[in-house]
Design a protein around this nucleic acid. Sequence first.
DNA 1: AGTGCAGTTGACTTT
DNA 2: TAAAGTCAACTGCAC
Length: 511
Amino acid sequence: MTQALNIVWFKRDLRIADHRPLATAARLGPVLPLYIVEPDFWAQADASARQWAFAAESLEELGRELAVLGQPLCVMTGDAVGIFREIHQRHGIASLWSHEETGNGWTYARDLAVAAWAREQGITWHEPRQFGVIRRLASRNGWANAWDSDMAEPVTVPPIALKPLGVDWPQTIPTAAELGLQPDPCPDRQRGGRTAALATLAGFLGERGRDYRFRMSSPVTAFEACSRLSPHLTWGTLSMREVAQASVTRLRALKPLGDPSAKSWRASLISFMGRLHWHCHFMQKLEDEPRLEFDNLHRGYDGVRPDVADQIKLDAWCAGQTGFPFVDACMRALDRHGWINFRMRAMLMSFASYDLWLPWRASGLHLARQFVDYEPGIHWSQVQMQSGTTGINTMRVYNPVKQGMDQDPTGAFVRRFVPELEGVPDAFIHEPWKWSGAASLRYPPPIVDHATAAKAAKDALYALRKGAGHKEAARKIVTKHGSRKAGTAATGRKPKAKARVVQADQLTLDL
DNA sequence: AGTGCAGTTGACTTT
DNA sequence: TAAAGTCAACTGCAC
Protein backbone atom coordinates (compact mmCIF):
# COMPACT_ATOMS: atom_id res chain seq x y z
CA MET A 1 0.00 0.00 0.00
CA THR A 2 1.26 3.41 -0.95
CA GLN A 3 1.28 6.40 1.34
CA ALA A 4 -2.20 7.74 2.19
CA LEU A 5 -3.45 10.60 0.08
CA ASN A 6 -3.99 14.20 0.90
CA ILE A 7 -7.05 15.12 -1.06
CA VAL A 8 -7.46 18.63 -2.41
CA TRP A 9 -11.17 18.88 -3.03
CA PHE A 10 -11.84 21.55 -5.63
CA LYS A 11 -15.25 23.15 -5.30
CA ARG A 12 -15.93 26.67 -6.54
CA ASP A 13 -12.21 27.51 -6.57
CA LEU A 14 -11.14 26.19 -9.96
CA ARG A 15 -7.58 27.51 -10.11
CA ILE A 16 -4.14 26.66 -8.84
CA ALA A 17 -3.03 30.24 -8.19
CA ASP A 18 -3.67 31.62 -4.72
CA HIS A 19 -5.00 28.25 -3.65
CA ARG A 20 -4.02 27.61 -0.04
CA PRO A 21 -5.45 24.11 0.25
CA LEU A 22 -3.44 22.96 -2.76
CA ALA A 23 -0.22 24.67 -1.74
CA THR A 24 -0.42 23.49 1.85
CA ALA A 25 -1.42 19.92 1.09
CA ALA A 26 1.33 19.60 -1.51
CA ARG A 27 3.91 20.18 1.21
CA LEU A 28 2.59 17.25 3.23
CA GLY A 29 2.89 14.42 0.76
CA PRO A 30 1.10 12.90 -2.22
CA VAL A 31 -1.83 15.03 -3.36
CA LEU A 32 -4.91 13.94 -5.21
CA PRO A 33 -6.59 16.95 -6.82
CA LEU A 34 -10.25 16.01 -6.97
CA TYR A 35 -13.41 17.51 -8.36
CA ILE A 36 -16.70 15.84 -7.56
CA VAL A 37 -19.51 16.32 -10.04
CA GLU A 38 -22.55 16.04 -7.81
CA PRO A 39 -25.67 15.21 -9.83
CA ASP A 40 -27.90 16.00 -6.88
CA PHE A 41 -26.40 19.49 -6.66
CA TRP A 42 -27.01 20.08 -10.35
CA ALA A 43 -30.57 18.84 -9.95
CA GLN A 44 -31.35 21.68 -7.53
CA ALA A 45 -33.76 24.38 -8.65
CA ASP A 46 -31.08 27.09 -8.65
CA ALA A 47 -28.67 25.17 -10.91
CA SER A 48 -28.57 25.36 -14.70
CA ALA A 49 -26.71 24.05 -17.69
CA ARG A 50 -25.13 27.43 -18.40
CA GLN A 51 -23.51 27.38 -14.99
CA TRP A 52 -22.30 23.86 -15.57
CA ALA A 53 -20.93 24.82 -18.99
CA PHE A 54 -18.86 27.58 -17.41
CA ALA A 55 -17.71 25.25 -14.63
CA ALA A 56 -16.84 22.50 -17.11
CA GLU A 57 -14.70 24.84 -19.20
CA SER A 58 -12.96 25.96 -16.04
CA LEU A 59 -12.41 22.36 -14.98
CA GLU A 60 -10.92 21.47 -18.31
CA GLU A 61 -8.34 24.20 -18.02
CA LEU A 62 -7.67 23.43 -14.38
CA GLY A 63 -7.10 19.82 -15.41
CA ARG A 64 -4.49 20.89 -17.96
CA GLU A 65 -2.70 23.07 -15.42
CA LEU A 66 -2.58 20.26 -12.88
CA ALA A 67 -1.38 17.82 -15.52
CA VAL A 68 1.53 20.16 -16.20
CA LEU A 69 2.34 20.03 -12.49
CA GLY A 70 2.46 16.26 -12.72
CA GLN A 71 -0.83 15.01 -11.36
CA PRO A 72 -3.95 15.55 -13.47
CA LEU A 73 -7.27 16.46 -11.95
CA CYS A 74 -9.36 13.50 -10.91
CA VAL A 75 -13.01 14.04 -11.81
CA MET A 76 -15.56 11.74 -10.24
CA THR A 77 -19.33 11.84 -10.45
CA GLY A 78 -21.55 11.01 -7.52
CA ASP A 79 -22.27 11.78 -3.93
CA ALA A 80 -19.36 13.38 -2.08
CA VAL A 81 -19.44 11.21 1.04
CA GLY A 82 -19.78 8.08 -1.08
CA ILE A 83 -16.80 9.05 -3.19
CA PHE A 84 -14.61 9.91 -0.22
CA ARG A 85 -15.57 6.63 1.38
CA GLU A 86 -14.59 4.73 -1.76
CA ILE A 87 -11.23 6.49 -2.09
CA HIS A 88 -10.55 5.99 1.58
CA GLN A 89 -11.21 2.26 1.36
CA ARG A 90 -9.02 1.80 -1.67
CA HIS A 91 -6.14 4.15 -0.99
CA GLY A 92 -6.50 5.67 2.44
CA ILE A 93 -7.05 9.37 2.96
CA ALA A 94 -4.57 11.16 5.19
CA SER A 95 -6.25 14.54 5.13
CA LEU A 96 -8.86 16.50 3.27
CA TRP A 97 -8.31 20.02 1.97
CA SER A 98 -10.75 22.46 0.45
CA HIS A 99 -11.70 26.10 0.62
CA GLU A 100 -14.43 27.09 3.03
CA GLU A 101 -17.60 27.51 1.01
CA THR A 102 -20.60 29.72 1.58
CA GLY A 103 -22.96 28.06 -0.86
CA ASN A 104 -26.63 27.27 -0.86
CA GLY A 105 -28.61 25.15 1.57
CA TRP A 106 -27.73 22.03 -0.37
CA THR A 107 -23.95 22.50 -0.20
CA TYR A 108 -24.26 23.45 3.46
CA ALA A 109 -26.00 20.15 4.21
CA ARG A 110 -23.48 18.24 2.08
CA ASP A 111 -20.58 19.85 3.93
CA LEU A 112 -22.12 18.86 7.25
CA ALA A 113 -22.37 15.28 5.99
CA VAL A 114 -18.76 15.28 4.76
CA ALA A 115 -17.59 16.78 8.05
CA ALA A 116 -19.46 14.13 10.04
CA TRP A 117 -18.00 11.34 7.94
CA ALA A 118 -14.47 12.72 8.15
CA ARG A 119 -14.73 13.09 11.90
CA GLU A 120 -15.98 9.53 12.19
CA GLN A 121 -12.99 8.29 10.17
CA GLY A 122 -10.51 10.39 12.07
CA ILE A 123 -9.64 12.37 8.93
CA THR A 124 -8.94 16.05 9.44
CA TRP A 125 -10.69 18.34 6.98
CA HIS A 126 -8.83 21.61 6.58
CA GLU A 127 -10.85 24.50 5.20
CA PRO A 128 -8.92 27.74 4.70
CA ARG A 129 -10.91 30.83 3.70
CA GLN A 130 -10.87 32.22 0.21
CA PHE A 131 -13.27 35.13 0.64
CA GLY A 132 -13.55 37.72 3.37
CA VAL A 133 -16.38 35.70 4.85
CA ILE A 134 -15.91 34.67 8.47
CA ARG A 135 -17.45 31.45 9.74
CA ARG A 136 -19.11 31.58 13.16
CA LEU A 137 -18.78 35.33 13.21
CA ALA A 138 -19.62 36.70 16.63
CA SER A 139 -20.19 40.32 15.66
CA ARG A 140 -20.11 42.49 12.59
CA ASN A 141 -17.91 44.99 14.39
CA GLY A 142 -14.47 45.15 12.80
CA TRP A 143 -15.56 43.07 9.84
CA ALA A 144 -14.49 45.60 7.21
CA ASN A 145 -10.99 45.87 8.64
CA ALA A 146 -10.67 42.10 8.72
CA TRP A 147 -11.60 42.03 5.05
CA ASP A 148 -8.92 44.58 4.22
CA SER A 149 -6.15 42.74 6.02
CA ASP A 150 -7.25 39.37 4.66
CA MET A 151 -7.17 40.64 1.09
CA ALA A 152 -3.80 42.29 1.66
CA GLU A 153 -2.14 39.00 2.59
CA PRO A 154 0.31 37.67 0.01
CA VAL A 155 -1.23 35.48 -2.67
CA THR A 156 -0.32 31.85 -2.33
CA VAL A 157 2.17 30.56 -4.88
CA PRO A 158 1.13 27.27 -6.46
CA PRO A 159 3.33 24.21 -5.99
CA ILE A 160 6.10 23.84 -8.56
CA ALA A 161 5.21 20.22 -9.12
CA LEU A 162 2.93 17.50 -7.83
CA LYS A 163 4.20 13.99 -7.35
CA PRO A 164 2.44 11.73 -9.87
CA LEU A 165 0.28 9.19 -8.07
CA GLY A 166 0.79 6.53 -10.66
CA VAL A 167 -2.79 5.32 -10.72
CA ASP A 168 -5.22 6.03 -13.53
CA TRP A 169 -7.82 8.28 -12.02
CA PRO A 170 -10.98 9.16 -13.93
CA GLN A 171 -10.82 12.48 -15.70
CA THR A 172 -14.01 12.57 -17.70
CA ILE A 173 -16.06 15.72 -17.38
CA PRO A 174 -19.70 14.88 -18.10
CA THR A 175 -21.79 16.93 -20.47
CA ALA A 176 -24.81 18.88 -19.29
CA ALA A 177 -27.06 16.30 -20.94
CA GLU A 178 -25.27 13.45 -19.17
CA LEU A 179 -25.88 15.30 -15.93
CA GLY A 180 -29.57 15.45 -16.74
CA LEU A 181 -29.64 19.22 -17.12
CA GLN A 182 -32.30 20.88 -19.25
CA PRO A 183 -31.04 22.40 -22.51
CA ASP A 184 -30.08 25.99 -21.75
CA PRO A 185 -28.65 27.80 -24.74
CA CYS A 186 -26.85 30.96 -23.73
CA PRO A 187 -25.19 32.10 -26.95
CA ASP A 188 -23.33 35.10 -25.55
CA ARG A 189 -22.20 33.47 -22.34
CA GLN A 190 -18.76 34.31 -21.00
CA ARG A 191 -16.28 31.48 -21.25
CA GLY A 192 -14.93 29.78 -18.17
CA GLY A 193 -11.32 29.04 -17.32
CA ARG A 194 -8.26 30.79 -16.03
CA THR A 195 -7.18 32.19 -19.39
CA ALA A 196 -10.49 33.95 -19.88
CA ALA A 197 -10.40 35.13 -16.27
CA LEU A 198 -7.00 36.76 -16.63
CA ALA A 199 -7.91 38.34 -19.96
CA THR A 200 -11.09 39.78 -18.45
CA LEU A 201 -9.21 41.17 -15.47
CA ALA A 202 -6.52 42.69 -17.67
CA GLY A 203 -9.10 44.16 -20.00
CA PHE A 204 -11.03 45.76 -17.19
CA LEU A 205 -8.10 47.20 -15.28
CA GLY A 206 -6.28 48.14 -18.44
CA GLU A 207 -9.00 49.93 -20.33
CA ARG A 208 -12.63 48.93 -19.94
CA GLY A 209 -12.96 50.19 -16.38
CA ARG A 210 -11.95 53.75 -17.17
CA ASP A 211 -15.49 55.11 -16.91
CA TYR A 212 -16.90 52.32 -14.79
CA ARG A 213 -18.60 54.79 -12.45
CA PHE A 214 -20.70 56.37 -15.16
CA ARG A 215 -21.26 53.39 -17.39
CA MET A 216 -22.20 50.65 -14.96
CA SER A 217 -25.84 51.62 -14.54
CA SER A 218 -27.08 51.51 -18.09
CA PRO A 219 -27.28 48.14 -19.83
CA VAL A 220 -26.25 49.98 -23.00
CA THR A 221 -22.74 50.47 -21.61
CA ALA A 222 -22.52 48.04 -18.68
CA PHE A 223 -21.71 44.93 -20.67
CA GLU A 224 -18.42 46.54 -21.65
CA ALA A 225 -17.71 48.85 -18.72
CA CYS A 226 -18.43 46.48 -15.86
CA SER A 227 -15.63 44.20 -14.77
CA ARG A 228 -17.39 41.01 -15.88
CA LEU A 229 -15.32 39.18 -13.30
CA SER A 230 -18.34 37.88 -11.40
CA PRO A 231 -18.53 34.38 -12.91
CA HIS A 232 -14.81 33.98 -12.37
CA LEU A 233 -15.19 34.92 -8.73
CA THR A 234 -18.14 32.57 -8.40
CA TRP A 235 -16.27 29.62 -9.86
CA GLY A 236 -12.94 30.66 -8.45
CA THR A 237 -10.93 30.94 -11.65
CA LEU A 238 -9.67 34.10 -9.96
CA SER A 239 -9.44 34.66 -6.23
CA MET A 240 -10.92 37.72 -4.59
CA ARG A 241 -7.47 38.43 -3.23
CA GLU A 242 -5.94 38.42 -6.70
CA VAL A 243 -8.57 40.85 -7.96
CA ALA A 244 -8.26 43.10 -4.92
CA GLN A 245 -4.48 43.24 -5.19
CA ALA A 246 -4.46 43.77 -8.94
CA SER A 247 -6.83 46.68 -8.39
CA VAL A 248 -4.58 48.22 -5.74
CA THR A 249 -1.57 47.82 -8.03
CA ARG A 250 -3.42 49.49 -10.86
CA LEU A 251 -4.55 52.28 -8.57
CA ARG A 252 -0.96 52.96 -7.56
CA ALA A 253 0.18 52.93 -11.16
CA LEU A 254 -2.40 55.60 -11.95
CA LYS A 255 -1.22 57.87 -9.16
CA PRO A 256 1.83 59.34 -10.87
CA LEU A 257 -0.20 60.20 -13.94
CA GLY A 258 -1.21 63.72 -13.13
CA ASP A 259 -3.67 64.25 -15.94
CA PRO A 260 -7.36 64.68 -15.12
CA SER A 261 -8.36 61.46 -16.84
CA ALA A 262 -6.27 59.50 -14.33
CA LYS A 263 -8.25 61.09 -11.54
CA SER A 264 -11.49 59.80 -12.98
CA TRP A 265 -9.90 56.43 -13.59
CA ARG A 266 -8.92 56.23 -9.97
CA ALA A 267 -12.41 57.13 -8.82
CA SER A 268 -13.80 54.33 -10.96
CA LEU A 269 -11.33 51.88 -9.52
CA ILE A 270 -12.12 52.91 -5.98
CA SER A 271 -15.79 52.48 -6.75
CA PHE A 272 -15.07 49.01 -8.11
CA MET A 273 -13.03 48.05 -5.06
CA GLY A 274 -15.93 49.04 -2.86
CA ARG A 275 -18.00 46.48 -4.72
CA LEU A 276 -15.46 43.74 -4.11
CA HIS A 277 -16.00 44.48 -0.47
CA TRP A 278 -19.77 44.31 -0.81
CA HIS A 279 -19.45 40.95 -2.55
CA CYS A 280 -18.21 39.41 0.69
CA HIS A 281 -20.49 41.58 2.81
CA PHE A 282 -23.53 39.92 1.24
CA MET A 283 -22.05 36.44 1.33
CA GLN A 284 -21.46 36.98 5.04
CA LYS A 285 -25.20 37.42 5.55
CA LEU A 286 -25.98 34.00 4.16
CA GLU A 287 -23.10 32.51 6.13
CA ASP A 288 -24.60 33.99 9.29
CA GLU A 289 -28.21 33.23 8.45
CA PRO A 290 -28.61 30.41 5.90
CA ARG A 291 -32.39 30.53 6.12
CA LEU A 292 -32.46 33.78 4.17
CA GLU A 293 -32.29 31.63 1.04
CA PHE A 294 -35.77 30.35 1.85
CA ASP A 295 -37.51 32.58 4.37
CA ASN A 296 -38.17 36.25 4.85
CA LEU A 297 -35.34 37.80 6.82
CA HIS A 298 -37.99 39.68 8.77
CA ARG A 299 -40.69 37.17 9.66
CA GLY A 300 -43.25 39.94 9.92
CA TYR A 301 -43.63 39.73 6.14
CA ASP A 302 -44.52 36.03 6.13
CA GLY A 303 -47.68 35.47 4.19
CA VAL A 304 -47.87 38.93 2.67
CA ARG A 305 -47.38 37.55 -0.83
CA PRO A 306 -49.08 34.37 -2.04
CA ASP A 307 -47.12 31.19 -1.38
CA VAL A 308 -47.59 29.99 -4.93
CA ALA A 309 -46.72 32.25 -7.83
CA ASP A 310 -49.31 33.32 -10.38
CA GLN A 311 -48.02 31.10 -13.18
CA ILE A 312 -49.16 33.36 -16.02
CA LYS A 313 -47.35 36.36 -14.57
CA LEU A 314 -44.26 34.36 -13.67
CA ASP A 315 -44.07 32.86 -17.15
CA ALA A 316 -44.49 36.24 -18.82
CA TRP A 317 -41.75 37.72 -16.65
CA CYS A 318 -39.36 34.81 -17.30
CA ALA A 319 -39.98 34.95 -21.03
CA GLY A 320 -39.57 38.71 -21.36
CA GLN A 321 -43.20 39.14 -22.37
CA THR A 322 -44.52 41.53 -19.74
CA GLY A 323 -45.34 44.28 -22.20
CA PHE A 324 -42.84 46.63 -20.56
CA PRO A 325 -40.15 47.01 -23.21
CA PHE A 326 -37.26 47.80 -20.90
CA VAL A 327 -38.07 44.96 -18.49
CA ASP A 328 -38.44 42.52 -21.36
CA ALA A 329 -35.26 43.69 -23.06
CA CYS A 330 -33.31 43.20 -19.85
CA MET A 331 -34.72 39.73 -19.31
CA ARG A 332 -33.98 38.69 -22.87
CA ALA A 333 -30.47 40.14 -22.71
CA LEU A 334 -29.91 38.16 -19.53
CA ASP A 335 -31.13 35.03 -21.24
CA ARG A 336 -28.62 35.44 -24.07
CA HIS A 337 -25.63 36.56 -22.00
CA GLY A 338 -26.11 34.86 -18.65
CA TRP A 339 -25.29 38.22 -17.15
CA ILE A 340 -26.86 41.64 -16.72
CA ASN A 341 -25.71 44.60 -14.69
CA PHE A 342 -26.55 45.05 -11.06
CA ARG A 343 -29.06 47.83 -11.42
CA MET A 344 -31.10 45.96 -14.00
CA ARG A 345 -31.09 42.87 -11.81
CA ALA A 346 -32.62 45.06 -9.14
CA MET A 347 -35.23 46.37 -11.55
CA LEU A 348 -36.16 42.89 -12.76
CA MET A 349 -36.57 41.67 -9.20
CA SER A 350 -38.49 44.78 -8.19
CA PHE A 351 -40.88 44.25 -11.08
CA ALA A 352 -41.49 40.62 -10.09
CA SER A 353 -41.93 41.36 -6.41
CA TYR A 354 -43.92 44.61 -6.48
CA ASP A 355 -45.63 44.95 -9.86
CA LEU A 356 -46.36 41.23 -10.25
CA TRP A 357 -46.58 40.46 -6.53
CA LEU A 358 -44.81 37.14 -7.04
CA PRO A 359 -43.30 35.27 -4.09
CA TRP A 360 -39.59 36.03 -4.27
CA ARG A 361 -38.40 32.46 -4.04
CA ALA A 362 -39.97 31.50 -7.36
CA SER A 363 -38.74 34.52 -9.29
CA GLY A 364 -35.40 34.38 -7.51
CA LEU A 365 -34.88 30.82 -8.65
CA HIS A 366 -35.38 31.80 -12.26
CA LEU A 367 -32.78 34.56 -11.97
CA ALA A 368 -30.41 32.21 -10.13
CA ARG A 369 -30.51 29.80 -13.05
CA GLN A 370 -30.04 32.59 -15.57
CA PHE A 371 -26.96 33.95 -13.82
CA VAL A 372 -23.74 32.24 -14.81
CA ASP A 373 -22.28 34.10 -11.85
CA TYR A 374 -24.93 32.90 -9.40
CA GLU A 375 -23.50 33.41 -5.92
CA PRO A 376 -26.12 32.33 -3.37
CA GLY A 377 -25.10 34.76 -0.63
CA ILE A 378 -25.23 37.79 -2.89
CA HIS A 379 -28.24 36.62 -4.81
CA TRP A 380 -30.67 35.85 -2.01
CA SER A 381 -29.69 38.91 -0.01
CA GLN A 382 -30.42 41.02 -3.07
CA VAL A 383 -33.64 39.20 -3.84
CA GLN A 384 -34.95 39.98 -0.37
CA MET A 385 -33.81 43.58 -0.53
CA GLN A 386 -35.66 44.07 -3.81
CA SER A 387 -38.73 42.44 -2.35
CA GLY A 388 -38.96 44.55 0.79
CA THR A 389 -38.72 41.59 3.17
CA THR A 390 -35.54 42.46 5.07
CA GLY A 391 -37.49 44.81 7.30
CA ILE A 392 -34.59 47.23 7.42
CA ASN A 393 -34.30 48.67 3.90
CA THR A 394 -36.30 51.36 2.23
CA MET A 395 -38.54 49.91 -0.40
CA ARG A 396 -37.12 50.62 -3.81
CA VAL A 397 -39.83 50.23 -6.36
CA TYR A 398 -38.51 50.83 -9.84
CA ASN A 399 -40.63 52.47 -12.49
CA PRO A 400 -39.82 50.45 -15.62
CA VAL A 401 -40.75 53.28 -17.97
CA LYS A 402 -38.67 55.85 -16.12
CA GLN A 403 -35.73 53.44 -15.93
CA GLY A 404 -36.03 52.86 -19.65
CA MET A 405 -36.02 56.58 -20.41
CA ASP A 406 -33.11 57.17 -18.02
CA GLN A 407 -30.92 54.21 -18.97
CA ASP A 408 -31.84 53.73 -22.62
CA PRO A 409 -33.02 57.13 -23.86
CA THR A 410 -32.68 56.28 -27.54
CA GLY A 411 -34.31 52.88 -27.18
CA ALA A 412 -31.31 51.21 -28.80
CA PHE A 413 -31.11 48.52 -26.15
CA VAL A 414 -34.84 47.82 -26.29
CA ARG A 415 -34.79 47.54 -30.08
CA ARG A 416 -31.83 45.17 -30.00
CA PHE A 417 -33.50 42.71 -27.66
CA VAL A 418 -37.17 43.28 -28.44
CA PRO A 419 -37.14 43.39 -32.26
CA GLU A 420 -40.95 43.40 -32.33
CA LEU A 421 -40.69 47.07 -31.36
CA GLU A 422 -38.38 48.08 -34.17
CA GLY A 423 -40.94 50.29 -35.89
CA VAL A 424 -42.15 52.11 -32.78
CA PRO A 425 -41.24 55.82 -32.81
CA ASP A 426 -38.61 56.89 -30.26
CA ALA A 427 -41.14 58.88 -28.28
CA PHE A 428 -43.15 55.73 -27.56
CA ILE A 429 -40.42 53.10 -27.37
CA HIS A 430 -40.79 52.67 -23.61
CA GLU A 431 -44.59 52.92 -23.63
CA PRO A 432 -45.67 51.41 -26.94
CA TRP A 433 -49.23 50.99 -25.69
CA LYS A 434 -49.62 54.76 -25.99
CA TRP A 435 -48.68 54.74 -29.67
CA SER A 436 -51.44 54.89 -32.25
CA GLY A 437 -49.97 51.92 -34.12
CA ALA A 438 -49.80 49.70 -31.04
CA ALA A 439 -52.55 47.37 -32.21
CA SER A 440 -50.43 46.20 -35.14
CA LEU A 441 -47.51 45.16 -32.95
CA ARG A 442 -46.76 41.53 -32.23
CA TYR A 443 -46.00 42.51 -28.66
CA PRO A 444 -48.22 42.09 -25.59
CA PRO A 445 -49.93 45.00 -23.84
CA PRO A 446 -48.57 45.72 -20.35
CA ILE A 447 -49.35 42.84 -18.01
CA VAL A 448 -50.19 45.25 -15.17
CA ASP A 449 -50.72 48.95 -14.68
CA HIS A 450 -47.51 50.01 -13.01
CA ALA A 451 -48.92 52.85 -10.94
CA THR A 452 -51.78 50.78 -9.58
CA ALA A 453 -49.71 47.66 -8.91
CA ALA A 454 -46.85 49.55 -7.28
CA LYS A 455 -49.25 51.46 -5.04
CA ALA A 456 -50.99 48.28 -3.91
CA ALA A 457 -47.66 46.59 -3.14
CA LYS A 458 -46.35 49.57 -1.20
CA ASP A 459 -49.57 49.87 0.78
CA ALA A 460 -49.52 46.18 1.73
CA LEU A 461 -45.91 46.28 2.87
CA TYR A 462 -46.16 49.59 4.69
CA ALA A 463 -49.19 48.34 6.58
CA LEU A 464 -47.05 45.50 7.97
CA ARG A 465 -44.18 47.83 8.68
CA LYS A 466 -46.40 49.91 10.90
CA GLY A 467 -47.64 46.85 12.74
CA ALA A 468 -46.79 45.83 16.28
CA GLY A 469 -43.39 44.28 16.84
CA HIS A 470 -41.99 45.20 13.43
CA LYS A 471 -39.46 47.68 14.72
CA GLU A 472 -38.12 45.47 17.44
CA ALA A 473 -37.40 42.62 15.01
CA ALA A 474 -35.90 45.07 12.49
CA ARG A 475 -33.52 46.44 15.11
CA LYS A 476 -32.15 42.95 15.77
CA ILE A 477 -31.62 42.41 12.04
CA VAL A 478 -29.62 45.61 11.76
CA THR A 479 -27.45 44.58 14.69
CA LYS A 480 -26.76 41.19 13.18
CA HIS A 481 -26.35 42.08 9.52
CA GLY A 482 -25.97 45.82 9.12
CA SER A 483 -22.83 47.21 7.57
CA ARG A 484 -20.63 49.25 9.87
CA LYS A 485 -19.93 52.12 7.54
CA ALA A 486 -19.01 55.35 9.23
CA GLY A 487 -22.07 57.07 10.50
CA THR A 488 -24.33 54.06 10.52
CA ALA A 489 -24.51 51.18 12.92
CA ALA A 490 -21.01 51.61 14.36
CA THR A 491 -21.35 55.13 15.61
CA GLY A 492 -25.08 55.54 15.78
CA ARG A 493 -24.66 58.90 14.09
CA LYS A 494 -26.09 59.97 10.81
CA PRO A 495 -23.60 60.65 8.03
CA LYS A 496 -23.02 64.29 7.34
CA ALA A 497 -24.80 65.65 4.33
CA LYS A 498 -21.53 66.15 2.51
CA ALA A 499 -20.40 62.57 3.08
CA ARG A 500 -23.67 61.35 1.68
CA VAL A 501 -23.09 63.22 -1.56
CA VAL A 502 -19.60 61.77 -1.90
CA GLN A 503 -20.98 58.30 -1.45
CA ALA A 504 -23.79 58.78 -3.90
CA ASP A 505 -22.09 57.05 -6.82
CA GLN A 506 -20.89 54.26 -4.60
CA LEU A 507 -22.88 51.36 -3.42
CA THR A 508 -24.39 52.86 -0.31
CA LEU A 509 -26.59 49.99 0.66
CA ASP A 510 -28.50 50.13 3.86
CA LEU A 511 -28.44 46.53 4.87
C1' DA B 1 -34.78 98.61 -14.39
C1' DG B 2 -38.10 96.77 -11.06
C1' DT B 3 -42.06 93.61 -10.28
C1' DG B 4 -44.95 89.68 -10.55
C1' DC B 5 -45.41 85.17 -11.94
C1' DA B 6 -45.17 80.70 -14.07
C1' DG B 7 -42.05 77.27 -14.61
C1' DT B 8 -37.70 74.96 -13.21
C1' DT B 9 -34.29 73.12 -10.13
C1' DG B 10 -32.45 71.07 -6.20
C1' DA B 11 -32.47 69.64 -1.47
C1' DC B 12 -34.97 67.12 1.50
C1' DT B 13 -38.94 64.22 3.24
C1' DT B 14 -42.18 60.59 2.83
C1' DT B 15 -43.87 56.32 1.28
C1' DT C 1 -30.05 50.53 -6.17
C1' DA C 2 -36.33 54.32 -6.09
C1' DA C 3 -39.92 57.57 -6.87
C1' DA C 4 -43.16 60.94 -5.68
C1' DG C 5 -44.17 64.88 -3.11
C1' DT C 6 -42.97 69.29 -0.71
C1' DC C 7 -40.86 73.56 -0.36
C1' DA C 8 -37.88 77.22 -1.18
C1' DA C 9 -34.71 79.40 -4.23
C1' DC C 10 -33.97 80.64 -8.68
C1' DT C 11 -34.73 81.85 -13.69
C1' DG C 12 -36.72 83.79 -17.77
C1' DC C 13 -39.92 86.78 -19.38
C1' DA C 14 -43.83 89.90 -20.01
C1' DC C 15 -45.14 94.20 -18.61
